[in-house]
Design a protein around this nucleic acid. Structure first.
Lengths: 360, 360
DNA sequence: AATCGCACCCAAAGCGCTTTGAATGCGCCA
DNA sequence: TGGCGCATTCAAAGCGCTTTGGGTGCGATT
């Protein structure tokens, strides 16, 4: 027995032997569907004694309202859309995605929302949002990894689909909701820390320049360097995918160059693992010969050390960000006409074993 | 304007100014909803010329059928459920999840299915599957990371919800569909490779014993060791979470022990990164003093080297597994009464830079 | 000329829920 | 005693689609 069966022609036919539904339940109780529905949804027009009776019966018969029918009747789908790009070229699935979703999922679950995931190639990303809107399958969406002049924000406004951006677009704009960390200040402080330790040849291994966060981090880094009178060397600045391999290759090349950096500022712990490998391969010691500061998203399976941090790091939990972004979105959905919400989180700077005074 | 608005009492009221629906479209065309629906769904009872006309209009007015209504009418939700445990204790979100989903998502998208994600704490996992069934929000589910005597399999059978297991339960059972890699053979071959290189003190750093794959890998490892007459030392076998920290700690401890291993067999590239760090910290050289063989799931953001593999590895793409598991599930959904499908994939063994002859 | 088959099309019912608008019954006040 | 207000309950409409079970009109068959 299954939910549906196929006829010979392949046309679907129904199978109504399903689970308990509202009508059946109300018949068992000798009440109207109206009353049962109201009782279960907590409306006041039903006496407390019948409500008790109804709830007991619902539990007894394991009754759950069909989300499909509920959605259709209410016009709300009780689901939030997330679009996960599965870039065909780079085969890169964002490693922080899982933790962000776990955080957001907690929030959603508490309010009865589900997650609708759309895994698409980058070039179909816009269409994925369009589909969400056209098929009315979600009540709101989260936008991940905003880029310079990101077309998604304009599209979502046009589609009138509530959304929250994790991160933000480069241009200041208070017409939409976002949650971001203070990337600029984070990298400025991180660079300053290294400068205070006596470093002046500090390399930046960053995410791709098209990403807003990467631009802001570079700006922060550059500001600290310039304020300290340190030269900004193009050969010491890389903006690329945040993979272990990129970290290794970039650091290897720099360490073999004419004026090798004595410190690295690295945008991701994964990239930093590659940098660490390069440092080791060059016969240098991390934290003594070469310092490294990273940004740590607190990815659950890549903790930055158990007790004390391994890498000195600017730190902000992406899981907490997911939780909060989910809250903001639900709030937007409940009250779409209130002004958008923006939150800028400051990061912690924690000292680990990967930094030390510049070698003399 | 939003999908719905709240009245003062908080009761939802409808807002029907929505997007184009079937009725509106059919009116514009001067046809009945029946005909339009049939035309768009490819049924034969409609002339080719009107079909063309209808399709053109649908495109012009950007008409998409509401999935909600469609689901209700057909009884199929056109969504696949995935439950992602967000364990509260370990805060561990499975790193291979993203890539598996990306693969499965490709398959789903090609058939018009969506992904419904349920992020729950481990203790609520069973309830998540129950909810999927009771709320009728998905047509089938994927079971991730099966454990010994996994209750989910029995539950799903009882719920009559089509499912496919990624991995399989320890007890042979051809009554359900699964897709697995040959973990036993993989680790047997990997251990054999090390033995052939002259190693005899080979450590195993494995996933938790409760996981089926970990048991099979240990069995394969043990078989090779015993066949070669190598002692199975308990202090050289670890079964724990597959994090960098665990790899580092376990390897550090072993390398400082009385009879340190000369080779490691590691269940995950993430753990192996910790092992590599421990080897470096001990002042040893990977691939010369100590050999390492890993299992590589080909996670997109943690490639095992660019061109040539970094670690010698048994290798199998988890993304490809997702694609195929999705296919199997869709097949099960379409024809639930056909016999279950089981697939056991063999892994590749690729040589990298992390293995060499045992030091003498 | 009556009948049949076929190609096309439609009205209406139904999926399982929510919500509107009314009905019922009861205590209470004038 | 009649009428009012309140607390409960219900019947029916509607959400946007699919599918059943006919219709209609036309050429071909007898």
């Amino acid at each position: 027995m299954s939910i549906y069966t196929l006829t010979v022609q392949g046309r679907a036919t129904r199978d109504h032997s399903q689970t308990m539904n509202l009508k059946q339940l109300s018949e068992k109780l000798g009440l109207s569907p109206t009353t049962v529905s109201r009782a279960l949804n907590g409306y006041p027009e039903v006496s407390e004694t019948t409500r008790q009776r109804i709830q007991a019966a619902a539990k007894k018969y394991n009754y759950f309202p069909s989300t499909r029918a509920k959605s259709l009747a209410t016009g709300r789908s009780m689901a939030i859309g997330h679009v996960i790009p599965t870039d065909a070229n780079s085969e890169m699935v964002n490693p922080i995605f899982g933790d962000f979703l776990a955080g957001a999922g907690e929030t959603y679950a508490a309010s009865g929302y589900d997650i609708m995931l759309s895994a698409v190639r980058a070039e179909n990303e816009l269409q994925a949002y369009r589909d969400f809107a056209a098929k009315r399958s979600v009540d709101g969406v989260i936008v991940h990894g905003p880029r310079a002049d990101d077309p998604r924000i304009a599209l979502l406004k046009e589609l009138e689909l509530p959304f929250v951006v994790h991160g933000r677009a480069p241009v200041a704009d208070d017409s939409y909701s976002w949650l971001d960390i203070n990337n600029r200040r984070a990298f400025q402080r991180a660079a300053q820390l290294l400068i205070d330790l006596g470093h002046s040849r500090i390399a930046l291994i960053n995410g791709q320049e098209s990403m807003d966060f990467a631009q802001r981090r570079r700006t922060g880094y550059a500001a600290a360097m310039e304020a300290a009178g340190c030269a900004l060397r193009p050969e010491h600045m890389v903006a690329d995918e945040m993979t272990e391999g990129v970290g290794f290759n970039a650091a290897t090349q720099m360490l073999h160059g004419p004026n090798p950096p004595t410190a690295f500022l690295v945008s991701s712990i994964i990239t930093a693992i590659g940098v660490r490998r390069a440092i080791g391969a060059r016969g240098l010691v991390l934290g003594r010969d070469v310092s490294v500061v990273i940004h740590d998203d607190e990815i659950s399976y890549l903790r930055n050390g158990d007790r004390e941090p391994l890498f000195t790091a600017t730190r902000s939990s992406v899981r907490a960000a997911g939780r909060r972004a989910g809250e903001i979105l639900l709030q937007r959905i409940a009250q779409p006409s209130t002004p958008p919400i923006q939150e800028l989180w400051d990061v912690e700077l924690t000292l680990g074993q990967s930094t030390g005074p510049a070698p003399t």
